[in-house]
Design a protein around this nucleic acid. Structure first.
Lengths: 217, 217
DNA sequence: ATTGCATTTACGTGTTTCACGTAAGGGAAG
DNA sequence: CTTCCCTTACGTGAAACACGTAAATGCAAT
């Protein structure tokens, strides 16, 4: 029997999540909670194996919640569910102490699998996440093969900075002024970005930036 | 019997939501969807009474989805579920054409109530939302509902053609060759588009084209 | 039928960005 | 110390952009 606590600020989502788990005989949902403070209070008295945190946004507040719970309940396994599943976010939650992460591509089976896996003392990350986490490791080994994959991880931070501003309709000159570098340098950065990502036009670069959440539509 | 379509980018949440509705005998969930494009496609063929959209973020893209569906399926009642329920956000979705909004304080009963209410031709907003909004304010917003998305309609078909090709990374020269016109003419068209839509850069033009489904990401 | 207006077409001029090189200096890794 | 990548920067020619001007067309209203 696995004792589970559920947290979701959104009551509807909380109930939905609760429903997904209630059918499983091995599971016992001992706590449904939509209030951060109530959660931390309750977890001091009752002991659960797995805490499922549905995070609608990954704010410092939410990350802190993970950190706090990790400290106060070292044996508690925290599973994050979030529709926001960029590499940065996943890494932050892991760093904060989460043992599992389910992105938006996850379904009920992934959830059940994740709970079992965490209960058994292992980490669980959904497919897209694993792929994401492995990518930078693999890319360091097989840089040539993967250089064709238009992956944001291959961009340097400077290149992302430039791309971000340019995606907000800054002109090269404005970007140059902002960073105190030459316009030619800005052009160079953009050239390198296009080469690296194998993009054939600036239009493609905009699309790439949008796809990779570098800029907002 | 009320036919319902469900959309949620997050599969887990989608399944949870589906579970919350499945127990009700009056309801028939005919479509579960986690892909924006699939949704619009499917809704062209099957007819549902209520579409429930769970929005994890209220982006222009999401708002535009509402607008598009409102235009293509005028009889469809759209119910928004979102953990983000600030006044501004709610107003935007209503403006876009949504007939109901459930904020984070809503539970399963609110959901069922909302679906019934929408099916009966009325609007539904959860408690916290209702007291936020003045009725006359809502109705004044609805008046200009149709004039809001007139931007795209102001473009001539030629302008849209050009924008479409350019959005597919065609160069001006290629577009000119395709239409047997001068490169300068292509430039003129683009200039006119930018003037007409009050865009200040080509990056903005890409974004506009994406927002208005002229080009695909 | 003529007026009026937006559209489509096109060009001129000057600025900006793109595409493709080259290359120096810095820092991290081996 | 060497190697490799990143950052910085420049050169050149082509392409695209910004801002005008302007003629021919098409269409709707009077």
């Amino acid at each position: 029997m696995i004792d589970i606590a559920l947290f979701d600020e959104h009551r509807l989502a909380l109930e939905g999540l609760s429903g997904l788990l209630s059918g499983v005989s091995d599971f016992r949902v001992v706590l449904n909670c939509d209030d951060r403070n109530v959660l931390t209070e309750k977890l001091k008295s009752i002991q659960v194996h797995v805490l499922i945190l549905n995070m609608h946004d990954i704010s410092v507040r939410n990350l802190n919640l993970i950190v706090q719970l990790t400290i106060s309940s070292p044996k508690l396994k925290i599973l994050i569910i979030s529709v926001i599943d960029s590499e940065e976010i996943v890494l932050k939650t892991i760093k904060a102490g989460a043992k599992g992460f389910l992105g938006k591509d996850s379904d009920r089976n992934s959830l059940l699998e994740a709970v079992y896996t965490l209960r058994n003392g292992h980490d669980y990350y959904s497919k897209s996440i694993t792929h994401l986490l492995l990518n930078r490791y693999i890319s360091s080994l097989k840089a040539d093969e993967l250089s064709q994959n238009s992956d944001i991880n291959n961009l340097s931070s400077r290149q992302v900075e430039i791309l971000k501003l340019w995606g907000e309709s800054y002109t090269n000159q404005e970007i140059a002024d902002k960073f105190f570098i030459s316009v030619r340098t800005v052009e160079s950065h953009k050239n390198h970005i296009m080469q690296k990502l194998n993009l054939k036009s600036t239009v493609d670069m905009v699309k790439f930036a949008i796809k990779n959440n570098i800029i907002e539509i």
